[in-house]
């Protein structure tokens, strides 16, 4: 019984920890499937987390915060587009530049505006996205197994967690079943053919980055308005890069990417649990080892030892219209 409780607790925090990864990985998916490398997920998340917390602190509304988070992330995505699509600049350089810019800017603005060492003010409950209790969850709590699964695991997350996991089938449908998705994949695989077929490559890539901005904005907002009660410096802590790793791990496909996010979230949840714990037989497991595992696994995958990760064919190649 106790092991079940422990398992449910770990899985519960797995969901909470993977939700922002799922959203960020889906964000990256839009960009990369359209042919634009996005190592700037980290920066967009951080910018969104800061803007959401700042606006929620001033307005008291989580929705205004969410709008600010999305707006900031979209703005950054458009700068990325302006550099990479319009000016055909190096996509890695642009993403990295935005990450560094945002990490400096959020700290500078946070200290200048709120004077709390880079934090935004602690948010009250009504300015955040709070856990939603499912109907009957409280009544079922004492029922064995079902109570734990329904009452703990499914119920009691905030809106964005549910949104993140519902977004996965939605994105899969958009990607594989709509004209928008077909065009998105076409400009990412073979922009010349897409162009010949009358698909505006530039416009389609900008639209993809718009989707990236929105999804990343929600992911960042989650960090500061749902998971925490305000922005803390460096609260993204590499999550954008983990999401990018998950996207590659999932071979640029929505459902596998989500599974990779769940795996990485699970590792994170286990690492938190293992902090200082002495396991039988193995002894104390170094937490750093578990924390480094997502990165190690991604390298192993990229090395082609467990399947092959083949990126979209036109990824990273600026499109030059012949003429």
């Amino acid at each position: 019984m106790e092991s079940l409780t422990l398992l449910v607790l770990v899985l519960d925090s797995t969901l909470r920890l993977s939700a922002p990864l799922v959203l960020a990985a889906l964000a990256g998916l839009f960009s990369e499937r359209s042919g634009i490398i996005d190592i700037g997920l980290e920066g967009k998340m951080r910018g969104a987390a800061f803007a959401a917390a700042a606006v929620a602190a001033v307005s008291g509304s989580p929705w205004a915060g969410l709008a600010a988070g999305i707006g900031t992330s979209v703005l950054l995505a458009m700068v990325h587009g302006y550099a990479c699509i319009t000016h055909r600049g190096d996509q890695v350089v642009s993403g990295l530049a935005l990450n560094i810019l945002v990490s400096g800017l959020t700290a500078v603005l946070g200290i200048a505006w709120f004077a709390q060492g880079g934090r935004t003010p602690q948010l009250p409950g009504e300015a955040r996205f709070l856990p939603l209790e499912w109907p009957g969850a409280a009544a079922l709590r004492d029922v064995p197994v079902l109570g734990a699964l329904y009452g703990e695991l499914l119920s009691g997350h905030n809106l964005i967690v549910y949104l993140a996991f519902l977004a996965v089938p939605a994105v899969a449908w958009v990607l594989y079943r709509t004209r928008f998705g077909l065009r998105l994949r076409a400009v990412g695989e073979n922009p010349e053919s897409a162009d010949t077929a009358g698909v505006p490559v530039v416009g389609q890539r900008y639209r993809a980055l718009l989707c990236t901005g929105v999804a990343c904005g929600v992911a960042g907002t989650y960090l500061s308005l749902a998971q925490s009660a305000g922005f803390i410096n460096d609260m993204t802590a590499g999550k954008g890069y983990i999401a990018l790793a998950a996207l590659i791990f999932g071979k640029w496909r929505p459902v596998p990417a989500m599974l990779a996010c769940l795996l990485f979230g699970f590792l994170d949840a286990v690492a938190i649990r293992l902090q200082g714990a002495d396991l039988p037989v193995i002894g104390e497991v170094p937490v750093q080892l578990v924390q480094a595992l997502p990165y190690v696994l991604t390298v192993v995958l990229l090395a082609g030892f467990i399947g092959r990760a083949v990126p979209p064919r036109a990824l990273g190649v600026p499109y030059v219209k012949e003429g």
Partner: peptide, 11 residues
């Protein structure tokens, strides 16, 4: 630094 990378690099 970020701005320099953006303007001198990507742009």
């Amino acid at each position: 630094q970020g701005l320099v990378i953006l303007f001198a690099g990507a742009l």
